[in-house]
Design a protein around this nucleic acid. Sequence first.
DNA 1: CCCACGTCCCAAAGCGCTTTGGACGAAAAT
DNA 2: ATTTTCGTCCAAAGCGCTTTGGGACGTGGG
Lengths: 340, 340
Amino acid sequence: MVMRLKDLARELELSQTTVSRALNGYPEVSEVTRRRVVEAARRLGYRPNANAIRLATGRVGAVGVALPLERSLHFGPHMSEFLSGIGERLAEEEIDILVAPLDADDEIPVHRRMAASRRVDAVVLSAPTPDDPRVELLTELDMPFVLHGRTAVDIPHAWLDIDNEGAFHRATSHLLDLGHRRIAMINGPAEQTFAIHREKGYLEALRERGLTPDPRLIAAGRFTDEIGFRHAQSMLDLNPRPTAFLAGSMMTALGVFRAIRSAGLQLGRDVSMIAHDDVFPYLNADNMVPSMSTTRSSIRAAGFRIGELVLQLLAGKAKEAIHEVWPVELVLRESSGPPP
Amino acid sequence: MVMRLKDLARELELSQTTVSRALNGYPEVSEVTRRRVVEAARRLGYRPNANAIRLATGRVGAVGVALPLERSLHFGPHMSEFLSGIGERLAEEEIDILVAPLDADDEIPVHRRMAASRRVDAVVLSAPTPDDPRVELLTELDMPFVLHGRTAVDIPHAWLDIDNEGAFHRATSHLLDLGHRRIAMINGPAEQTFAIHREKGYLEALRERGLTPDPRLIAAGRFTDEIGFRHAQSMLDLNPRPTAFLAGSMMTALGVFRAIRSAGLQLGRDVSMIAHDDVFPYLNADNMVPSMSTTRSSIRAAGFRIGELVLQLLAGKAKEAIHEVWPVELVLRESSGPPP
DNA sequence: CCCACGTCCCAAAGCGCTTTGGACGAAAAT
DNA sequence: ATTTTCGTCCAAAGCGCTTTGGGACGTGGG
């Protein structure tokens, strides 16, 4: 049979109170007793029942991560890296991660359920839209959360985002510096905040040079090879064709690459490309041929940090004080160069 | 304040017992009372405290999915599809999914903790090796589990696997039928059961035609673009070079594809390839150019089914009765044809 | 010598639910 | 008319932990 606190206490001829306190490091128990207790617990393989602790304390030791099923069609590979990052940090504190796979339409009820049934202490949200309703919902439900990304919602909340606007501004400016004038942008899903920010950075960079953006060179869609291919292909049919591409993800970049090649062009010579790289271990920009110039920001590192922020939030830090914008590196490699 | 069972009972002027039974569908409460209770619960937004239920019943309503951090470097994209599949089924039953990201070295303690602290009712394991120690561990801990894949461990346990051996046997045989004689195999991590099965299928097909396998044409490694590229590149340097490739994953296939091209060869004409496709929504074999011939099996569907099997296991079905081998389709497209 | 004050420990009351073992009438059976 | 059965409902005892509110036993200062 599994050993409970009561058994352990009986074994030690101490009260449950004392054993509990000894194990949880309260001061009102002598050091020698504590050592005895801890040693016995280890020896007898005592493991507190997590559910009893949860009930007694009201704390759960778990955070929920919303995994939008539909969106995960776009964010599959991102999601797993992100999760790993969060997990890496929270595992250190023995905090569980509850993934809540949800359809777009039952997102609200699932969050309600999570909150009301006290399954988690906090929630991590990602892939927000500017008017994301989840922010209001969770605030109302009094459920602490950290958002990966940003919204325009006017309710104080904790978030961490990367500087998407800055990244694409720099990438675009760099291509302009090289002499490119027709720069295509294959963005992520148009409703997402990060995609909006990226477009903003791109447009702003063009405007600063007095260039008028060509709407035919701007496309949006999911982060798939296929979307990249289709958009790039039709853009390369234009006359004059774009001499450079910005790609929203490495998946997109693969598609663009294919389109460039199948148009008989050579990446890095005839056409340039800078792609955004969330740093997947299985898709290395450096090892591509030609190696890919990227705006780089590890989504895994962001996850790790978000784990940290969740802990801070739960420790009582004000959500107003939890805002981080991470700079994005521009890594130049062979895929970007001057126009022919 | 949040509504508890006691409040709801007081509100209805009923006992907690009756309210609880009404809500949980026990027979000893009249239909009219039940309706009253259910209606009031809905109206007042009553949500039972999950932790109290867990403590009282001993059931948790959660299953753990081991997410090996290190291995997830190989299985990142697979993992997220697989998780989605499991989640899709279990969400229907309001069962939570706990992901336990773990380093290879603390795998054992994490499982012990999960089991002893009653955080989950069951566990899903994936990516086993033939002598996987987790099978024995979980059996010992009396923790129900379903394995995705197979081991050679001689302990009864529930599993679901795809017919890796058959798939690669067929793919190899098909290439042989087309006239290929030098067929290279770029496999997954050598220690994994599925990779061993695939190699077996491949070797067996060669032997059936009286061919001696060339060890230089067999490689193993993680499922990355890079690994695919490296191995394929060095194999294409051989003389005579392989005329066909088998790739363990779509990621690998992308790398092989690059190597073929950078050797100045054309896929589907000079060199053939059949890749294994776990069906990622963001990497579509049909949309590649040329479209990719594959051995196809949806890892998401497998996840969904495993969710189902977990439920059966928890409902009392014997683990000895839970064994499934799924056939794998061979889908021929443009990347495979006769040798030049 | 007494009292205040630490120090170390304990009994018991929760946490919010399920479940056991009846109670109480009314209807059916004897 | 009395006993059985049945349909409804309830009080109270857990589930395994934390935490409150003391109690007992030295120790040192007045």
